[in-house]
Amino acid sequence: MSVVNRRELVAGLASVGVLGGGAVAWRVRSTVLGNDGSDRSDSDEHNDDDGEGDDEGDDASDGAVTLETIDAPGSDAGAVTIPTDGVSLVVFFSAVCHRCRSLMPNLVEAQAQLADDHGDAVTVVSVASHQTEEQLRDWWAEHDGDWTLAYDGDGTLGREYGVTRHPVLLAIDADGDVRWRDEGELETERIVDRVESVLEEPVETDDD
């Protein structure tokens, strides 16, 4: 039995849809870009409040989080640690979320463009917390995913960054700080522009 399936037995079928649309808290540096244009009102049936999202983030640890990765197109079975050495574009999604399906074509184009233009400087990781490994693999192939697919079965990474709904996109720097956050069905150009803005921002140092 895979790690995912063992977690599914613990979580149970009732875990589907537990991520809520409550208040969101996350660790943000003063240099974080604004999320104007986010559509937080466009929730779906899987964004019901679970009553636990209001104060998550206050208890977030400062350590890295390692997730299991799934053998799927563009993704190898193994593990990925967030943050990475560069900028990570982390996409929290659910296979039963309508907006997540609508986002995928633009995300496919954005990932390809970022890979072509910036190579290993940007790591794209899509993160799911529900469904079985087989269901996620099938969904991934159906929607042309071609980058790292990770499983956050116990919700550790989601809690670390105050994620309570889907989809959520985060640009996370090497220190684990969120430099851009947005939600909804974003255009390819917006995704690329925001990630590139993080890449281009000068690194702060203690030198005078």
Rank of each mutant, 00 (worst) to 15 (best):
D85Q: 07
W147H: 14
L157N: 07
A23L: 13
D85I: 02
T164Q: 04
V125N: 07
S41C: 09
S197P: 03
R190P: 01
H166Q: 04
G34R: 12
V178M: 00
A115S: 13
H118T: 05
E45H: 08
G37Y: 00
D76Y: 03
V91S: 12
V3T: 12
V87I: 15
A25V: 13
R6D: 14
D39R: 04
V168Q: 08
D177C: 00
L170T: 04
G51K: 10
H46D: 06
I191Q: 13
E52T: 07
G78V: 06
L199T: 06
L67E: 00
R6C: 03
D54P: 08
S126Y: 05
I82Q: 03
A23K: 09
R7C: 03
Y151W: 15
S94N: 14
R27Y: 07
N5H: 10
G37P: 05
C97F: 14
L89V: 07
D44H: 05
V122T: 05
V124T: 11
T31M: 12
G184C: 14
D48H: 02
V108K: 01
D173Q: 00
L13N: 03
G119V: 06
L136E: 03
A11S: 10
P73D: 01
A79E: 15
V124N: 08
V18C: 08
M1C: 10
L103R: 00
E133L: 13
G145N: 01
A95R: 09
L9P: 02
G21S: 13
V124M: 14
S94M: 13
W26R: 09
L107G: 03
A121N: 02
T69H: 11
D50Q: 06
D154L: 13
E68K: 08
D49H: 02
A77F: 00
V91F: 11
V96F: 15
A64W: 02
Y161F: 15
E133T: 11
A14L: 15
Q113R: 11
D146H: 12
D120T: 14
A72K: 01
R137V: 01
V10L: 09
G12R: 04
V124G: 07
H166P: 00
T123H: 12
D62N: 08
E189L: 00
